[in-house]
Design a protein around this nucleic acid. Structure first.
Lengths: 123, 123
DNA sequence: ACAACATTTCCATAGTTATGGAATTATGGA
DNA sequence: TCCATAATTCCATAACTATGGAAATGTTGT
């Protein structure tokens, strides 16, 4: 996944109402939700919600289909997992093994940062 | 983790230079990196970098210590994992089991969305 | 004390984002 | 066709964010 796409996705999620909408869709699963349902759930005026859903759509985080007069928004789990994968990339590799990390380290170095200034202070 | 903190973290990561800086720090591991090194790596003027590092700091995504004249920025892996956990929360539960999902579903419903309009169309 | 270095803060400017009422488009039922 | 419903687009406004030169702050070695 390109880092430009990742930024678009992060921008989309970095907003109160969009994060709430996305989470509601993740929770709703494959059946998805309509804008009117979301509008009520999140207490947002239709145009405002529409604006935010468009951002999530452009970021590829949600997909839309029509069902009669209603549109149905569904979370795109693959996109979400792409973002998560990008953020955890290079984490928990040789250099890093925090307790909370869910990915297993391949090897842990016990190396401490030793700068000239620190060495001098030690001496 | 509070959703307000999550939004602050996502805002911090949703910017080209900050995402690049954060990833460089994740890759660098516990030894961390100084602003001057980052400034060169990312080709950013010092004040601009400083501005972005401050945002990452306020978002709790990085920690700083001083070593002589230099500051040392280190990625906060716990914070990053908190963001990841928040995003994947409620995912891959009963209602959802995408192929790409890394978390095992507890149970998979084979339920399709059946709206009035769809039912009518089918009939 | 002073010079040199590392980094930050200050600040004006340019650009971007969020908001919601009014108008518009699309769909389905009578 | 005409009406009601679902959702979007339009648009002006207010608020926020990024940028980088100049100045200020803190730190070390002489």
């Amino acid at each position: 996944m390109e880092s430009e796409q990742i930024i678009t996705a992060l921008e989309a999620l970095a907003q109160e109402h969009r994060l709430a909408a996305f989470r509601a869709l993740v929770k709703a699963g494959p059946p998805g939700l309509t804008p009117s349902v979301l509008s009520e759930k999140l207490a947002l005026p239709a145009p405002t919600l529409s604006f935010h859903l468009a951002q999530l759509r452009h970021a590829g985080l949600v997909n839309v289909t029509r069902d009669g007069r209603s549109l149905i928004y569904v979370a795109n789990y693959d996109a979400m997992n792409g973002v998560v994968a990008f953020l955890t990339e290079n984490c928990c590799a040789d250099a890093c093994a925090p307790a909370s990390c869910s990915v297993k380290p391949t090897k842990v170095k016990e190396k401490t940062h030793e700068t000239p200034a620190r060495a001098r202070r030690r001496a």
